[in-house]
Design a binder for these strands. Structure first.
Lengths: 233, 233
DNA sequence: TGTATTTTCCCTGTCGACAAAAATTTTGAT
DNA sequence: ATCAAAATTTTTGTCGACAGGGAAAATACA
């Protein structure tokens, strides 16, 4: 149990919130805590050996990022996934894939390219190892690095939120389908890197859009197939 | 003094945070609290007749929206405006003007159009009255209504953040230039409404971009002129 | 036995207090 | 008089406790 520290009171002054924030965030994004799960403040406080105050602070930050929903006078719950309005999410994801990749082609530095390549190497390693969780996390890091290369802090912040939401969706997908992996994604990433390095804005736009379409098609086919299987014999 | 309620303890259970949150937010967006102003928790607590806890909660929410910056173990301050990277803000604003207006042309309902027209009427009234603060607030409401008509919650949330940042910039502009008002904005708004009603996506895109360019040019000329005046004789 | 009402219990929202960290002032030495 | 070090003050981060609200449980009634 890595959660309970050996000496509960021997913690640095501002680190308690970060601790529970990071833990909760990971568990939400990896669906350890499924959407709708009620979050008990006292349970968390006991689990991390601290008072309710820093727990509440962490929950507020998560609520600000849309990962938990706080009902007045009632327990906070893990934010639900709005399956009926997924197309809105797909729209936003496609737009931000395109915009961030375009900007990266314009503003990338050598250090940015090195970081992007390192993320891509980690992603390829995760695909090779058939590690679905690592794939999801490294894919997010890859696109976050591209957004960083673009340099627009507004786009970066918004894109991170969209990517986090997508991380939950992908986790749902991979945990249901025995971690089947799309090899083509690795190649698409390589093409994107090449286009960014070449500074080809229009090519980056097309590749970003195609990449988004690819992921969206996978998610959509997953939900469509899931619906068919729900039909009783 | 509308802040201090008559009976401090006669307040509904969850309304304390909303109270100080709304008040702080307005004062930040209208530059009553200029960027960099330190925020004293105990002063706010005394001002609103409550404990530090709800004040802290409101500050956390504002920090999550990027309106205040919290330094560890030090006083929180009103978020600074990054004048050196304004072009990033302009990029984001232009993109969201275009995207939300396009989407509104696709998804607008009659109720949406009525809301948009109502906002435009309020904006025109503010221009007529030469009320700069009302102009800024109603302009924001106008574009927020367009985003609502589009219906994409991701775009709506992001656009609201961008609009709030722009509200601070515009406030800076108008309070310096004796509230001189650009009449052309009213006409541009009318054109946008007509394009949305006609469902002309491409026209909405062009108008949204032109509208953003117009506002950006105003802000840029303001800063350019300000810089010239800084040259000593 | 099923439903409406009351009671109990659990959980959140708020408060006052204390401890740690930073800012400020005071003290001391050269 | 100037600068460094120590003491004081101020302010934040955390804690335990209490009160209010809602939900579940218990009771009453048809």
């Amino acid at each position: 149990m890595p959660d309970t520290p050996d000496s509960p009171s021997e913690r640095k002054r501002g680190s308690g919130v970060r601790l529970v924030y990071d833990a909760l965030r990971d568990e939400i994004l990896e669906l350890v805590l499924p959407p709708g799960t009620p979050i008990d403040e006292v349970a968390l406080a006991e689990r991390f050996g601290m008072s309710r105050t820093p727990v509440r602070e962490a929950l507020l930050r998560l609520a600000g990022e849309g990962l938990v929903e706080t009902l007045p006078n009632r327990s906070a719950i893990v934010a639900n996934i709005d399956f009926l309005n997924l197309h809105h999410f797909f729209d936003a994801m496609t737009l931000m894939y395109r915009v961030t990749t375009r900007l990266a082609a314009l503003n990338r530095s050598d250090a940015d390219l090195a970081t992007i390549r390192a993320c891509q190497a980690q992603f390829a390693a995760a695909v090779e190892a058939q590690d679905a969780l690592a794939m999801i996390a490294t894919n997010r890091a890859f696109h976050a690095a591209i957004a960083d290369a673009g340099g627009n802090p507004y786009y970066i912040a918004f894109f991170l939120r969209v990517l986090d939401e997508g991380r939950r969706l992908l986790r749902l997908y991979y945990q249901s389908y025995n971690d089947r992996l799309p090899q083509s994604i690795v190649g698409e990433h390589e093409d994107i890197i090449a286009a960014i390095e070449a500074g080809d804005v229009e090519l980056c736009d097309r590749l970003g859009r195609a990449h988004a379409d690819q992921i969206i098609r996978q998610i959509q086919s997953f939900f469509a197939r899931d619906r068919r299987e729900d039909v009783p014999l």
